[in-house]
Amino acid sequence: MLLRKRAWDMMHEDFVSIDESASLAEGITVLREGMKASPDNNVVVVLKKNGELRGVISVWSMFKAVEDLVLKDEDLNLTGETDWDRAFKRAGTASCSASLDEHIEEDVAIFKPTDPMLVVLEIFRKKKRSWALVQEGGKIIGVVLLSDVYRELSRDLITQF
């Protein structure tokens, strides 16, 4: 049964997406809202103006972006007196106005809906990511999360014993 599973058996069709011209703050907001519906989801699909895939913004790329903004704050000084409230406020303001553009991950793992479980496992292993996109006819139709693959594997393996 396990080897009959396909990418479409595991994908989420209710993924979140955002336009490539959005700000970092908008990306963070969209991801947070998406995680309310699916707590394991840690990516936002980024689309070009024409609706084609540009890439993704992951939790990790957002952490890095926010970290870069905080660490660049001239008020942040770990060796002396630091006005943390002021530094955080400035970092928050910078996050709101920062472009999403430089934080988009364009090296994206993509499946076809009919890709079998073995292909899914191989791509997850090679890419070392916890997510991949499912594309059909040039359009993103879903997201597969590593946690979904694990659930399918463990469900079928447990029934074998």
Results as ranks from 00 to 15, higher is better:
Glu74Ser: 13
Asp75Val: 02
Leu76Ile: 12
Asn77Gln: 06
Leu78Met: 10
Leu78Asp: 06
Leu78Arg: 08
Thr79Asp: 15
Thr79Arg: 11
Thr79Lys: 05
Thr79Ser: 11
Gly80Met: 06
Glu81Lys: 15
Glu81Asn: 14
Glu81Arg: 14
Thr82Tyr: 01
Thr82Leu: 07
Thr82Asn: 02
Asp83Gly: 15
Trp84Gly: 11
Trp84Cys: 12
Asp85Gly: 15
Asp85Cys: 08
Ala87Gln: 03
Ala87Cys: 12
Ala87Arg: 06
Ala87Asn: 10
Phe88Ala: 15
Lys89Glu: 06
Lys89Ser: 10
Lys89Thr: 09
Lys89Tyr: 00
Lys89Gln: 09
Lys89Phe: 08
Arg90Asp: 14
Ala91Cys: 07
Ala91Gln: 02
Gly92His: 00
Gly92Val: 00
Gly92Ala: 01
Gly92Pro: 00
Gly92Ser: 03
Thr93Gly: 01
Thr93Glu: 06
Thr93Lys: 10
Ser95Val: 08
Ser95Cys: 11
Ser97Arg: 15
Ser97Pro: 01
Ala98Tyr: 03
Ala98Asp: 13
Ala98Gly: 08
Ser99Lys: 09
Ser99Cys: 12
Asp101Tyr: 09
Asp101Val: 08
Glu102Val: 12
Glu102Ser: 11
Glu102Asn: 13
His103Trp: 15
Ile104Asp: 03
Glu105Asp: 02
Glu105His: 06
Glu105Thr: 04
Asp107Gly: 05
Asp107Ala: 09
Asp107Glu: 12
Asp107Lys: 11
Val108Met: 01
Val108Pro: 07
Val108Tyr: 05
Ala109Gly: 04
Ala109Glu: 06
Ile110Leu: 01
Ile110Val: 07
Ile110Phe: 01
Phe111His: 01
Phe111Met: 03
Phe111Glu: 04
Pro113Ala: 02
Pro113Glu: 07
Pro113Thr: 06
Thr114Phe: 10
Thr114Met: 08
Thr114Cys: 06
Asp115Gly: 00
Pro116Ser: 02
Pro116Tyr: 02
Pro116Phe: 08
Pro116Val: 05
Met117Ile: 13
Met117Tyr: 04
Met117Trp: 07
Leu118Gln: 02
Leu118Trp: 08
Leu118Phe: 08
Val119His: 10
Val119Pro: 05
Val120Asp: 12
Val120Ala: 14
Val120Gln: 08
Leu121Asn: 05
Leu121Gln: 00
Leu121Glu: 09
Glu122Pro: 07
Glu122Phe: 15
Glu122Ala: 14
Ile123Arg: 09
Ile123Tyr: 14
Ile123Phe: 11
Ile123Gly: 11
Phe124Asn: 13
Phe124Trp: 07
Phe124Gln: 10
Phe124Ser: 15
Arg125Phe: 10
Lys126Ser: 14
Lys126Gly: 09
Lys127Glu: 12
Lys127Asp: 06
Lys127Val: 15
